[in-house]
Design a protein around this nucleic acid. Structure first.
Lengths: 381, 381
DNA sequence: GGTTTTTTCCAAAGCGCTTTGAGAGGCAAT
DNA sequence: ATTGCCTCTCAAAGCGCTTTGGAAAAAACC
């Protein structure tokens, strides 16, 4: 059976390869054959035979090694192009031991909460991977936990590196990955051992400090905060920024007007409603996500308050394309940092780590812009 | 160099393998070595040598072929487990020609709009893949367009199948995939050649027909609609459902109160504002996405209207975890169908197609529940 | 007991690529 | 003429697995 296929393959290739020399009738047949069988893939050996070269030389020519003559290389490249030759990725992976793939693991352990930030982040990353000929391998929870997945990846060389998302306080993943010698980079950062791994983070502390300071400068003294889950380091850092700015002004911290939880529309609504209903209600609100904003605006509208007048609002904006802070009415004052751009940069850094094995571990801390728009006003105007 | 590594490997393996027989001191060393080198992966040959079996037999035992004795299989399984043996995925792929991976392509061509629905869908799918030992390969736009990616996938056997998302009217992808003989399934469906490919779709037409009928039954005669981009088949179908329900009641279609565009918060706001500002404004609004709802509610609130009284609202709810229709106030009447569940089912169907090469092309049309909640009321009450 | 069938295992040949180590040919220097 | 040094090319040996086509041992039949 397989031998029949082989023979057909041979015949077919013969015609295809002779295409330039054949007469019209044959050429027509060939064209339609080519059309029909565009899925056919020739391999290196066949290409080499056609070029009257050894597979070695062809392989080297295509991969740009210097040992092959300029003219030969040109010829090989041209024919490979014309015939649509694509090296078999699996064979290449096996031979080189490199997978040209990056692993991303979905954070499904958080009560089935699929974070819409994730898709934006990974989209940014994936575009970079695509440019460099890398694939992205996704994994979503299930029976295996994240760490076993890493272990499996490391063993089989299924991926050349992984991206760790949403680090938590004392996150166990970092230690494991270091042990596994699997290249990785963290989006976000832990407070401990900052130097022992690569990371890219935005300055969450600074961002919320700036935001809080803006509010205190505008005269606000009661400022509520609706934050992400507190064991996530990003949320912790934001809280620290918030608290330090308050301390700077000698303002005490009131747990009644703080909240941390899932960043959903509904939670935004509930928490802001709760916070705005207490007797001495805050005059300003800090929100950790645009998702929370939709809910908060709902609550605020419902209570008959006016954003920017009765209550000032600042939110962190990850640049999600379906939730535009500027388009809101009034337009929203935000601390803004594109999560998609972060994804791209993380990808670049990881690819660097992978190719320059002994390069330094990169650490990038992005400062976050505070963009003042219409949702913040001085108190009591 | 590599030979040194080899020797070390040999020695190491020797100790590890003898672990059960060794005395305490050695055992301790071994334990720590094991600990340190958890990333070490033995290969089939080594495992076979240790078991005094041939690689053939071990391979067969692990893959559950019948040619191997029950006792032998048990032994092999046990030792493989104990030693943490994992077959090298690339070698396996090369040998079998199957990649055990499914391709998903990100829809980035839509003006950089990363659809948050996508992550929910793929999360559902990925969980199924994980159970069956399949990986998901993601690809996001960039230099290559979607079709070239498919072509590349097909040639190298990089994936065993692909999932096509967001089909458009006259979508060219289907024809290409059929030609490439790359197994695939469409989430959604085209109107043409419905039988020539596998698909799973929700009954968008029926859903919006039901929703519109509910509104007309409640006495509404001017019903606006804010839909997705009209070249997407799902949006087209919804529009058809809407129009057919109106026709049934002899109600004309007014293009002034219909709209189609990106499903973003901002667009929801703008379009609903526009529609609600025309002189003879609708008493009900149909929305194609919960994302549009946030914007629409904003507009409605701003105009001082009350949902469920002045204006009835029905939206399609894909079950996004961060945007809960029931949690809104008033809770929202929706046509509901979990996109995540669809992802899971699509994955199952595709895996079926892949394993049973000559199974029938599955076609599943999911009916959509209309869940009546507080946002719909009879007109003029 | 001899013959056939079944069970259980193995040697060896791939899968399609990369890479090592070496050879052939050309040219300049000795 | 010999040597040395490039430049360009190749044969062959992997990478780690699966799978084909037996073969040996055990079991079943006549």
């Amino acid at each position: 059976m397989t031998s029949i296929i082989k023979i057909v393959k041979q015949i077919f290739m013969f015609y295809v390869l002779q295409r330039t020399k054949s007469n019209f009738a044959v050429a027509t047949i060939i064209e339609s054959a080519l059309e029909m069988c565009q899925s056919y893939s020739m391999n290196l050996k066949e290409l080499a035979k056609y070029l009257n070269l050894s597979p070695t030389t062809v392989s080297r020519a295509l991969n740009g090694y210097p040992e092959v003559g300029a003219e030969t290389k040109r010829r090989v490249d041209a024919e490979a192009q014309r015939l649509g030759y694509q090296p078999n990725p699996h064979a290449r992976r096996l031979a080189t031991g490199r997978s040209h793939a990056i692993g991303h693991v979905f954070p499904t352990d958080r009560s089935l909460m699929i974070d819409p930030l994730f898709s934006d982040f990974v989209a940014g990353a994936a575009e970079i991977y695509a440019v460099h000929g890398f694939e992205v391998m996704l994994h979503a929870g299930g029976s295996e936990d994240e760490i076993s997945v890493y272990r499996r990846y490391a063993q089989g060389g299924a991926v050349d590196g992984v991206v760790v998302l949403g680090p938590r306080v004392n996150d166990p993943r970092i230690a494991v990955l270091n042990k596994l010698k699997l290249p990785f980079i963290v989006h976000g950062r832990l407070d401990e051992h900052e130097d022992s791994y690569a990371w890219l983070d935005i300055d969450n502390r600074g961002a919320f400090q700036k935001a809080t300071k803006l509010l205190t400068d505008l005269g606000h003294r009661r400022i509520g905060i609706i934050n992400g889950l507190e064991d996530m380091t990003f949320a912790l850092h934001r809280k620290q920024g918030y608290e330090s700015a308050l301390r700077d002004k000698g303002i005490g911290i009131d747990p009644m007007i703080t909240s941390s939880g899932l960043m959903t529309e509904e939670n935004g609504y509930r928490q802001s409603k709760r916070i705005l209903q207490i007797t001495n209600r805050p005059t300003a609100l800090l929100l950790s996500s645009m998702l929370l904003v939709s809910g908060a605006m709902r609550a605020i509208n419902e209570m008959g308050l006016h954003i920017g007048k009765d209550i000032s609002v600042i939110a962190h904006d990850d640049g999600l394309p379906f939730l535009n802070a500027e388009g809101l009415v009034p337009s929203l004052t935000t601390t803004r940092s594109s999560i998609r751009a972060a994804g791209s940069r993380v990808a670049e850094l990881l690819l660097n780590i992978i190719t320059d094995a002994d390069a330094e571990q990169p650490h990038e801390l992005w400062s976050v812009d505070l963009i003042v728009r219409g949702s913040t006003g001085s108190v009591g105007v």
